[in-house]
């Protein structure tokens, strides 16, 4: 096994402002551990309870969404090719201006267009329009019983008042690499 060099470490963590970073196979147990750990850390270094709550809730939505997207992959062929498609990355950073949550994972190519369209659509909405969409999804009887990324992303936009920054990178005929950044201002 290769050693983690300082350069690789810097690439993974970036700088000293990282609260938490991870790259590897993700599951709900790991997400629970990260949420509990970050909750405890926020209690010690974020004095504003409103910001603490907001960061924690946005992180819950981001990581649970990440986990669902990985679960949705077809695991039969997710290990083929150069990358293990079950792997994901996320990093939580902070500076004087705010908290930054970045997540990245593989998604099936046939999901890219609808997800991209949805994110572009809700990114353009005003707060009132977002609230209206949120309520519409919430009261929709056919809404997924396990929740859904649709409501999660709308909720993140309502909580942060910042646009979602996202990209899709083509990987191969079956998969793309989806990365999304969220900012919670202090």
């Amino acid at each position: 096994m290769e050693k983690i060099t300082l350069e690789a470490h810097k690439k993974m963590v970036g700088s000293t402002d990282a609260v938490f970073s991870f790259r590897g196979i993700i599951d709900i147990d790991l997400v629970d551990h990260v949420l509990a750990s970050t909750h405890a850390k926020l209690e010690t270094f974020e004095a504003n309870p409103g910001i603490r709550r907001k960061v924690y809730l946005v992180l819950v939505e981001c990581l649970q969404n990440l986990c669902k997207q990985v679960e949705c992959l077809n695991h039969d062929d997710s290990h083929s090719g150069e990358y293990d498609k079950s792997a994901a990355s996320f990093i939580i950073k902070t500076d004087a201006k705010g908290y930054y949550i970045a997540t990245a994972n593989f998604v099936a190519n046939d999901k890219v267009e609808s997800l991209s369209n949805w994110l572009n659509e809700i990114n353009c909405y005003t707060r009132e329009e977002l609230r209206s969409v949120y309520n519409k999804i919430l009261t929709n009887k056919s809404y997924s019983k396990q929740g859904g990324a649709g409501l999660g992303f709308v909720d993140i936009l309502l909580k942060t008042n910042n646009k979602l920054e996202f990209t899709f990178e083509f990987v191969d005929d079956n998969y793309s690499f989806f990365s999304i950044n969220v900012c919670v201002e202090k």
Binding site: R53, L57, E61, L138, K145, Q146, G147, L151, D155
Partner: peptide
Amino acid sequence: KYYNTSSAKCIL
């Protein structure tokens, strides 16, 4: 204290 979007529907 907190609830996520998965719980939001259940509360409703």
